[in-house]
Design a protein around this nucleic acid. Sequence first.
DNA 1: CCAAAAGTGTTTTCTCTACACCCATGT
DNA 2: ACATGGGTGTAGAGAAAACACTTTTGG
Lengths: 234, 234
Amino acid sequence: MLEIYSRHPKHFLAVDCIIFGYDLAEKELKLLLIKRSFEPAKGHWSLSGGFVEEGEGLDDAANRVLCSLTGFSNLYMEQLYTYGEVDRDPGDRVISTAYFSLIGIHEIEHELREKYGAHWRSISNLPDLIFDHRRMVDRALKELVEKVKAHPVGFELLPEKFTLVQLQNLYEAIYQKSIDKRNFRKKILSMNLLEKQEDKERETSKKGAWYYRFNEEKYEEFTRNGFFFNLAVS
Amino acid sequence: MLEIYSRHPKHFLAVDCIIFGYDLAEKELKLLLIKRSFEPAKGHWSLSGGFVEEGEGLDDAANRVLCSLTGFSNLYMEQLYTYGEVDRDPGDRVISTAYFSLIGIHEIEHELREKYGAHWRSISNLPDLIFDHRRMVDRALKELVEKVKAHPVGFELLPEKFTLVQLQNLYEAIYQKSIDKRNFRKKILSMNLLEKQEDKERETSKKGAWYYRFNEEKYEEFTRNGFFFNLAVS
DNA sequence: CCAAAAGTGTTTTCTCTACACCCATGT
DNA sequence: ACATGGGTGTAGAGAAAACACTTTTGG
């Protein structure tokens, strides 16, 4: 009965993870990159990836890779695109499905990063990447911008409590555009997405800035149904 | 050097094509489905697909499948998503990348359809599909709606000459919502995307409706850069 | 002459944008 | 007292939405 299947060839299948982090202090989007530990292209900058194993689902493979690198197993993660050109990997023919995920930069333990030779690299100054990984990153960045226009992503990229200034910085880092402060606040507050806390962040200013946190139900709702966020100053 | 690769298993890899067509007469979106010709699930409704062969790119495989079914090799086509659950295909483990494409329903020869047992089925009344094909279709429909908000798709789904009423019907079929006629015309005409022709369509009304065609440069521009189209009446 | 579909403008509402000063506090 | 970053409101422009009648012509 499966003769028809077995007439066809099998292929190596991999996943590659594009891991975005947001650096509160530097107000920059970063990418978690590793130095590849085997040939071909050993020692070059690479996304972290891995082969899909026997009996392992595609999403599961991506989660395994992500989890081994970050120590978290329930991160936000989304399939991006599958790259299937015959010669994309000079080692052998490998089809690779790219996933992207979002994480607060502060959440990853230093030891884990050391263990895998992983480094946060700023988006605006990426090193050369192996194979087609740069194309993957570019596509992920585009996707992230689109995502952000219609879905909240702050939960994934910010700590639990954050200030409006920090949230705005995040949006500006993603859009690569500056946003008018008053318009930003007006819009984001009118969504009923944020809950003002009792305490203030006092590191960066003398006056201090009120902490907010996301209202979970509202966040979920927007994650499901989307909204429209498109404030920007060119 | 490739020992590291060869420690990992290989997998069957397939493509499945979600082929949308627009039926001018019935004002409905349709899907080109086939009756599967081999086990498992022989005789059941299915998207048309095929295995990725040795030395064949993923996009190339999708094009091959699409072309064999429609007779066209340069159709609009876009990768949708890759389905990689271990047991999605009861025959064996097969990872499948879904592609969706758009075509005018009138463009496919009857003989080709006969040859492959392909049939146009209305979106609003689909038969049961094998495996996870229904999920693929649902995702493609969502994607199509998003696509249409920012990119013109009429070229792919309509004949060269069409009326504004027909174009509006197409949008309504995709959105599954009715659109105000005056607002629709105002907006679409203000884009300079359409060129009024000298002649009228006279099949459906006594008065006749002016034919339009797309301005190719403008169409290309919008395809590249996008626009914003979101008129609808719930 | 009438049925059937095509075509046409205006008003209201809402959302986006631009823009500048006061507030609180640690030093 | 002042420097630093946080916080606030309003007016104007442009886009979206709501809405109803006239035109053409084949039968």
